[in-house]
């Protein structure tokens, strides 16, 4: 079974891109399963199940980072898609904190960015973009060509290896190259590894200590005028 994991900031059109891709994949005889990972609300699973009659699921990550959550549940999800006799598992996750990416080695990593988010966005989103195999740029019809070209060049600066594909997610124009990339992805092997290194996630803030100011915290902390330093035993 092939695995494609789609990430990108909120409202960029991840689901719209995947919807058009799913339609084309089904036309080519593929059997798709869809998993949505979001923090506290999602209905994409219901929409896609109603539209295509494919197996779909969602997970609310709640207090867990959605990308961490994706790492936790992906093994089970592959088994679930397998039991449903699917040939492709598509995972959509809300990449929120910009410090890690949900892509796995052996699967396709798709990043969806919108051209309207400003020319500096590619410089800000980190591994979600730099580790993606394919970057789909949506909403290009809403900005000038000049801005679109600069946006694109900045993506290529950050992620020299990513294939950039401009798409109109409303009408499904420009989706074919993404579909080809999904179909060219080899079947995933058993021991999947997260592609990038996750950031340190065991700090005192992450575990629930809410006091403001580094003096209240332990471990790797930082003050306004300093770089990170270690505080504790």
């Amino acid at each position: 079974m092939k695995i494609a994991i789609c990430s990108g900031p909120p409202t960029t059109g991840k689901t719209s891109v995947l919807r058009h891709a799913i339609r084309k994949l089904i036309d080519k005889g593929e059997r798709c399963a869809f998993l949505k990972i979001d923090v506290q609300f999602a209905e994409e699973d219901e929409q896609l199940a109603a539209e295509f009659g494919i197996p779909t699921r969602k997970v609310y990550s709640g207090e867990l980072c959605p990308d961490h959550c994706s790492v936790m549940v992906l093994g089970d999800a592959i088994q679930w898609a397998d039991e449903n006799d699917c040939s492709i598992l598509l995972v959509e996750t809300a990449g929120l904190c910009l410090r890690c990416a949900p892509y796995v080695d052996g699967g396709l990593g798709i990043c969806v960015l919108e051209a309207t988010s400003g020319m500096n966005l590619p410089l800000k989103v980190g591994p979600m973009l730099s580790l993606a195999d394919v970057t789909v740029v949506t909403k290009g019809d809403l900005v000038s060509q000049a801005e679109r070209e600069v946006f694109r060049a900045r993506i290529q600066d950050v992620a020299p290896m990513t294939q950039i594909r401009e798409a109109n997610a409303l009408y499904g124009i420009g989706i074919d190259p993404l579909v080809e990339a999904i179909l060219e992805t080899p079947d995933a092997h058993d021991d999947l590894l997260l592609r990038g290194s996750p950031p340190v996630g065991t700090c005192t803030i992450c575990v629930g200590k809410r006091e403001v100011g580094w003096q209240a915290h332990f471990g790797v902390v930082r003050a306004l005028d300093n770089q990170n330093f270690y505080r504790g035993q």
């Binding site: 020319m119 900005v143 060509q145 000049a146």
Partner: peptide, 27 residues
């Protein structure tokens, strides 16, 4: 192909010179 769309608002708040430089470098 160059396309000049009906969208005449820029999203970028860069100064004109810096923006043109960014685009000129790409092109």
């Amino acid at each position: 192909i160059a396309l000049i769309t009906q969208h005449t608002t820029f999203l970028s708040d860069l100064p004109v010179g810096e923006f043109l430089e960014a685009h000129a470098t790409v092109r």
